[in-house]
């Protein structure tokens, strides 16, 4: 912008005209930027405060559940899922509520809660965990077709072994030993050594008995 052939006055004039053309945008941008920053910080602090409130409520929910004060637990569950739906504590409260309903032998209602969580949550891991748990509840309710639908899992990732184990249990409950064997074998193959339930899956697999002998030639 600075040209050595121009006099000082000319240069000053050039700067002034540049400022006339662009100054407004510059100031505007600055205002927007600072304003945005301020707004972001305000939003952040509101959202942090909201999360902290939800966090306290969740802590109370855990205590109430542990002491089997279910009325209080139900109240806190309603509060967290209604008022703090934007925080992770809403999902946590749903998981906790399902467990508490199982303790109260209300499998139907637990299935409802988990079904709701599966459709609501934006977190893939929470959704998979909710599905795994929903599958177990449906198995308990002997709703095998719904359970099998939930346990179907095409992806090959961290959750593959868990879902395969669930499918094995469903097949076993239905008396389908061959399918159970296939599923447990898939679970062991997918989970590898690090799969915490590998030992138990192996026990379940052994319990199916030796595979039917292949017809001798």
């Amino acid at each position: 912008m600075i040209d050595e052939n121009l006099t000082d006055d000319q240069q000053a004039e050039l700067i002034k005209s540049w400022w006339r053309e662009n100054g407004l945008f510059l100031v505007g941008g600055l205002v927007l930027g600072v304003g945005g920053l301020f707004g972001w910080q305000t939003w952040q602090s509101i959202s942090t405060q909201e999360s902290q409130e939800a966090s306290n409520a969740f802590q109370q929910l855990l205590e109430a559940s542990a002491q089997q004060r279910y009325n209080k637990a139900d109240e806190l569950y309603e509060l967290i899922t209604a008022d703090y739906a934007g925080t992770p504590y809403a999902d946590s409260a749903e998981l906790e509520q399902a467990a508490s309903l199982i303790k109260r032998n209300d499998e139907e209602q637990a299935a409802e809660v988990l079904r709701g969580l599966v459709s609501k949550t934006g977190d893939t891991s929470i959704r998979n965990i909710a599905k795994l748990r929903l599958g177990r509840v449906l198995l308990q309710l002997e709703d095998y077709s719904a359970a099998a639908k939930i346990a179907a899992y095409a992806k090959n990732d961290a959750y593959t072994a868990e879902f395969a184990d669930l499918r094995g249990d469903i097949a076993y409950a239905q008396g389908n030993i061959a399918a159970a064997r296939t599923a447990y074998e898939q679970a062991l193959a997918a989970g590898g050594e690090a799969f915490p339930q590998a030992g138990y899956v192996r026990v379940k697999l052994n319990d199916l008995g030796a595979p039917a002998p292949v017809a001798a030639e």
Partner: peptide
């Protein structure tokens, strides 16, 4: 710990799963 509580403390075992576990 809250995350762990959310997942580990809320884990449950249904009566039929539990019966099978004990039988084995």
């Amino acid at each position: 710990r809250q995350l762990q509580a959310a997942i580990i403390d809320s884990a449950f075992v249904t009566p039929s799963d539990y019966r099978r576990f004990l039988e084995l």
